[in-house]
Amino acid sequence: MALKAITANRLRDGAVVWLGQKGDWVERIDAAATYDEAGAAAALAQAQQDEARNLVVAIYTLDVEILDGAPSPLRTKERIRALGPSVRADVGKQADPIARAAA
């Protein structure tokens, strides 16, 4: 069973975010918390309160693996969300200096 992370878009600016270790929303997938199947369901339910609080929209879980010690999405779509468009390296999260947010 694949490892899971939880993602959403922040309401006020649409930025792609993942649920972090402290239940906060982080802008880089490196800092995302990961869960097993059961843990993901519980964390998702908890995270959905942030949708009700109008902080984020479109919350869902995604499959990840750990690469070089950090979560990495399995599917192309989620990789593109985590990095930015594959056709322009100068925009999106991939263009920012690699600042691994403190977990």
Binding site: N9, G14, G84
Partner: peptide, 13 residues
């Protein structure tokens, strides 16, 4: 928002 052209897309609005 859609009727004002605003979508929520992969990276942002």
């Amino acid at each position: 928002r859609l009727m004002n052209g605003l979508y929520l897309q992969l990276h942002a609005y």
